[in-house]
Structure formats: structure tokens, C-alpha cells
Design a binder for these strands. Structure first.
Length: 294
DNA sequence: GGAGTTGTTCCGCC
DNA sequence: AGGCGGAACAACTC
């Protein structure tokens, strides 16, 4: 669910609330989400520390505190929301006082899917909710962050300077997998998931099944150039909500209506009118136009 | 009841 | 050795 634009939207949302706030304690209801530490480790390490900054690489959210940082992978259904119980009747708020955005029903209240709650000294909290529990949390001392396998194994993030045509070309020409599968490989380029990989290939007019090493320089350039604008416009729309995705305020994203192919299998191509193909590529549902994409 | 779902990892095969 | 495909993870919806 949460791909780069969704994680970025959450990051921006949390940026309004977290930096400067002090962690009082952590409630872990599902320890299996913690990959490289125990619940006691996490509690001991973070209690008393303040949040310093929020960062993101690919789909990984980096929550930086004074001495330690959390890496959070949201998996398919992870949600991170900021709660402020001081606000009068939290769940019935229509317009958020800080963001001015419309609030969403009941995504805030901890329920059986809320697995981690970071409580702050001022009574607010950061809630992690994850229906399928595919999310993963990692704890690192700040000095060890850059060397962490989770960050080190990532290929270029489209919004960082190492995202270049040359790097993408070299990575793609080294594999014979379907280009769709290669674009989902976070060590080749990080941040794309099933939605945006399909959207990028439609914009680039490339069929998802094409072997990555069969792409011409011109085709590679089309893919390279399609990535940033597609991700950026989704960020501008605050992400794509199909079902579970919510931002830091519990709001849905508005990008679904901008999608050209994802979720439109069997419908007409918005460019040429042809019926869009839908088939499994590398185990993932893929949608493309048989007439526009070659 | 079966199939499908926005992500990642692990295992076995070639 | 290392690339690759498929199963597994889990919970819900259609």
C-alpha cells in the first residue's frame, strides 16, 4: 500500500507534530513487528528522548530521535497517526486545527489492529496500526543508521541525487527479469510499488513483461523521466488511498482519480480507448494498454 | 468457501 | 555463486 508518495505524505504530516516532543513510554502489543530489538530494548532506548527529525528513503520512514532512530516499514497496511486526546472529541473533528484538512472517521482510536503506541510526555501519542502485520520496525543508534542493511540495500531514491539515468540504465541492463519486476526491486530503484510501477510503465509506453535488459536507451530514458513527475503529482495529491492508506492525520489521499492504469483493468485506455490488459507479472497484478505499451 | 490484496523475505531450483 | 520464481507471512473483503 504505502509507496513513496504515501510514506512522504506521512512524513510531512508527522513533521508538523513530532520534532521537539518527548517520548514518555512505548506500548508494544505485537512484538513480532520489532525486527532487531525487543520491546524492552525499544522502551529503554527511546524513553526520555525527544524526536529530532523525520526522514525517508524509498518506502522507509526514518524517525530520528536524539540518540536513536526508528526505521519503519509500513508493509501493506501500516498506518502511523498522531493522536491528541486534548482536542475536544477527537473522532468527531471535522477540520483539523493545524492542517486545515478534513478529518477521517475513526482511524485514530486504538483498536485491535493498533500494535504500537508511543506515548509522549504531553499526553499526545504516535499510533501504529497495521491490519495485516506485514510492517517492520528497526531500532538503531544514530551512528549506525547509515550502515543499516535496510538503508544500505536500497537503490537510488528518485528524489535523491544518485537517481540518474546512468544508474538506472546500468541496474536495469543487468537483469533479464520483466521490467515491471525490476522496477519493484528496491535495490534497483527504491520507492516504487505495484501502483506506481504500472503508472510509470504506462507513461513510458513500455509493456511490463519486457525483459529489463531488452530496453533501448530511448526506452530507458522514458522510464527514467516518468518516475519523478508521477511520484511528485501523487505527493501533491497526498497519496493514493485504495483501502487502508491514511496520512498522519488519518486522512485518505486523493490520488486515485489521477491513476491512468492501476485498478482500471478491463476499462478503456484513457489515451487510445483500447481495453486495458490485466495479468500477473512476477506474482503481482499488472495493468497495461496492449496498444500504447510495447 | 475461494480468490485476491498497495510489500518484503526466504527457500529451493537452476 | 548468484539470479530468479514462487511460497509465506496475516487479515480482511468481495
Amino acid at each position: 500500500m504505502p509507496e513513496l508518495p504515501e510514506v512522504e505524505t506521512i512524513r510531512r504530516g508527522l513533521l508538523k507534530y513530532l520534532p521537539g516532543r518527548k517520548i514518555a513510554g512505548i506500548e508494544i502489543k505485537c512484538p513480532k513487528l520489532l525486527i532487531n530489538c525487543s520491546a524492552a530494548d525499544l522502551e529503554r532506548s527511546l524513553s526520555g528522548q525527544s524526536y529530532a527529525d523525520l526522514d525517508r528513503l524509498g518506502k522507509i520512514l526514518i524517525i530520528k530521535c536524539e540518540r536513536h532512530s526508528l526505521l519503519v516499514r509500513l508493509g501493506m497496511t501500516g498506518q502511523l497517526t498522531f493522536r491528541d486526546p486534548e482536542l475536544p472529541d477527537h473522532n468527531e473533528f471535522k477540520i483539523h486545527p493545524v492542517t486545515g484538512l478534513q478529518r477521517n472517521e475513526s482511524q485514530y482510536s486504538p483498536d485491535k489492529h493498533t500494535h504500537i503506541i508511543i506515548a509522549h510526555e504531553d499526553g499526545t501519542s504516535l499510533c501504529y496500526r497495521d491490519i495485516r502485520k506485514f510492517g517492520r520496525w528497526y531500532l538503531y543508534a544514530n551512528g549506525d543508521l547509515d550502515a543499516s542493511p535496510e538503508l544500505k540495500s536500497l537503490g537510488p531514491d528518485p528524489f535523491r541525487c544518485d537517481y540518474t539515468l546512468e544508474n538506472l540504465r546500468e541496474a536495469l541492463r543487468r537483469t533479464s527479469r520483466a521490467v515491471k519486476t525490476a522496477l519493484l526491486d528496491q535495490s534497483i530503484i527504491c520507492g516504487l510499488g505495484n501502483i506506481y510501477a504500472d503508472e510509470v510503465l504506462f507513461a513510458a509506453k513500455i509493456q511490463p513483461l519486457r525483459p529489463a535488459d531488452s530496453l533501448s536507451d530511448e526506452e530507458l530514458e522514458r522510464i527514467y523521466s516518468a518516475v519523478k513527475p508521477i511520484l511528485q503529482s501523487s505527493i501533491d495529491n497526498r497519496g493514493t488511498t485504495f483501502s487502508d492508506y491514511r496520512d498522519a492525520d488519518g486522512n485518505k489521499g486523493e490520488n486515485v482519480s489521477s491513476l491512468k492504469v492501476y485498478g482500471r483493468g478491463g476499462k478503456n485506455c484513457l489515451h487510445c480507448g483500447e481495453t486495458l490488459n490485466k495479468a500477473s507479472v512476477g506474482g503481482r497484478t499488472s495493468t497495461w494498454c496492449p496498444k500504447c505499451q510495447h
